[in-house]
Design a protein around this nucleic acid. Structure first.
Lengths: 217, 217
DNA sequence: ACCTGAACACCGTTCAAGT
DNA sequence: ACCTGAACACCGTTCAAGT
């Protein structure tokens, strides 16, 4: 009946069955109300979805960097962002539908900027480092298989399958074979992350600030 | 009338007004035919969209690496992939809707694998390098503003606007200020790309293979 | 203030019937 | 072989009318 209940049950429906599982009419049925009754509480479908995105993004703002060095803490933030997106698979679709992709990334940018500062990064160089790290996370979300949503269409062809039929003398055989194997997403992400950090974080930030901290740990 | 004409006009409609501009009924009107007439030629909406994605991906397979060193050619492939995606903004939406994200990235993977081989990369290490580079492109597509599609909802809030109200003593002032500026996407992409290549490509691949080649150029 | 019912303008798809 | 018309089961949204 209340605005809160509408948003809550709508979110629940999306979490169960993906974005397409939410229609105003099904939501009304779930609430035991006429389809038109919803419109008094929330403006319409788009407003409702925006409300949900804002809620989830707020929750995602809770990032807790861990690690002794600034570089480690940057890595931990990147990992947490990825983890949160994996925990809310529908969010990507939702954000795209609403044109909120960039806004969704904002809390992550702030958290990364904080650790980048601790790592001694400044100005344009620091900003570029933050953006590059987020791109890596975004790319993962874009190109790796997300845990299947219930109603979502099946991923038709994986790149791994496609690689099996590649015969190309210009491609190293061991490399081609590696592409046919489904990579472990966690370690693949970790490797890419560390590569980028190598390039982007000054070496000094990989060293613990004082020897006291080391002894304590 | 023909299957080809159906696919062609459907693609044209999407290129004009985005994916949501294409409905079976509007397509029928455009073809001067009853809505149900389409179903004899193409199975249905989903098959039609799949056909279009396949067509576009086929065209995208035409990647022409340029540059003297293997590293430069890897960079050029990454740039071309990004460029092609920017030229087909609807493709991202389409690929997601069909669960074809990974398959869309396949031609790029092959082209990158070829140059990675030339750069001396092999096995898992090489495969990881290819994937990391594609993630960077994918992240760009995901998080940067794409050229606005006609019917698409407006990007509500940019991260740049959001950064203007950030007051955080843990963030370097010059870094925070840099985040309020809209970055030049081309140079930002270039910087991230070079960073990742630094981390991922062996140093030997940045050197021209023979001194003869250098003299000729 | 809060909800309903009727109505409007859309969808994708099936399937018997026409030529 | 190719297309139409009627029909079905859906959408989101508006708006006058009810309590």
């Amino acid at each position: 009946m209340t605005r809160e209940r509408v948003i809550e049950t709508a979110r629940h429906m999306i979490e169960e069955g993906g974005v397409e599982a939410l229609s105003m009419r099904k939501l009304a049925a779930e609430l035991g109300v006429a389809p038109t009754g919803i419109y008094w509480h929330v403006g319409g479908r788009e407003q409702l979805l925006t409300e949900i995105v804002d809620e989830v993004v707020d929750e995602m703002a809770d990032l807790r960097p861990t690690g002794a060095t600034a570089r480690d803490r940057m890595a931990s933030v990147a990992r947490q962002i990825r983890r949160q997106v994996l925990d809310h698979p529908y969010l990507v679709e939702l954000a795209r539908e609403l044109g909120q992709g960039p806004a969704t990334a904002f809390p992550g940018q702030v958290a990364l900027a904080r650790e980048a500062t601790a790592a001694g990064l400044q100005g344009e160089e620091g900003a570029d480092a933050v953006r590059a790290l987020l791109w890596l996370v975004g790319g993962f979300v874009m190109l790796e298989r997300l845990p299947q949503q219930p109603d979502q269409p099946v991923q038709r062809t994986t790149t791994q399958e496609l690689w099996k039929s590649v015969r190309d003398t210009d491609i190293d055989a061991s490399l081609a074979k590696a592409m046919t194997r489904v990579p472990d997403p966690d370690t693949l992400f970790e490797t890419s992350l560390q590569s980028l950090l190598d390039a982007v974080v000054p070496a000094s930030a990989t060293v613990r600030k004082s020897s006291r901290a080391t002894r304590r740990g």
